[in-house]
């Protein structure tokens, strides 16, 4: 069963992708772009190859779908939504989200991850932050490492 990781822990999911399941009572809808209305309060489902747009940023949640985990287009889309269009809502990775890749997704601005099952969610939690710090700037750290920490030989 799909399992949600948010704020670095497994959480109950109060959103549902309408294409996948009919939302139960009290569950909010995530709809694809063609069915999404900006004023609806629905979450928006985008594919990795989608062009980002400022209009999307009123959505309370944007889910980016990974057809295969090795398709990096969703990473660039996330970076653009966060850094160029200042999207501040929840940014969720869905689809083929690989537990070993959360440390990339996280630095591109994702803050929740719908893992395919509970086992992969547990794995993801065990390997959330394999590195203490990274060289380059990212959505999380706008400054590269040498600007943030004192580096010496």
């Amino acid at each position: 069963m799909p399992t949600l990781i948010k704020h670095d822990k497994i959480m109950e999911d109060d959103w549902a992708i309408v294409e996948v399941e009919a939302p139960a009572d009290g569950i909010r809808r995530i709809v694809p772009l063609e069915a999404w209305l900006p004023e609806s309060g629905d979450g928006l489902l985008l594919q990795g190859e989608c062009e980002p747009d400022a209009r999307y940023c009123v959505a309370p949640l944007i889910a980016i779908n990974f057809l295969v985990f090795s398709d990096g287009r969703g990473l660039s889309l996330a970076v653009l939504l966060r850094s160029r269009f200042d999207f501040t809502g929840e940014l969720r990775a869905v689809g083929d989200v690989h537990p070993d890749l959360l440390y990339y997704l996280n630095r591109c601005g994702f803050d929740s991850y719908l893992m395919p099952d509970e086992r992969s969610a547990q794995t993801a939690l065990s390997t959330l932050a394999p590195y203490t710090d990274y060289y380059q700037a990212s959505v999380l750290e706008p400054n590269p490492a040498h600007r943030r920490t004192r580096r010496f030989a």
């Binding site: 990339y104 591109c108 990274y134 380059q136 990212s138």
Partner: peptide, 14 residues
């Protein structure tokens, strides 16, 4: 080299 090491956005290129 440093910039491209484990780059969050560019480690899963075409």
């Amino acid at each position: 080299r440093q910039w491209s090491t484990s780059h969050p956005e560019f480690d899963w290129l075409p």
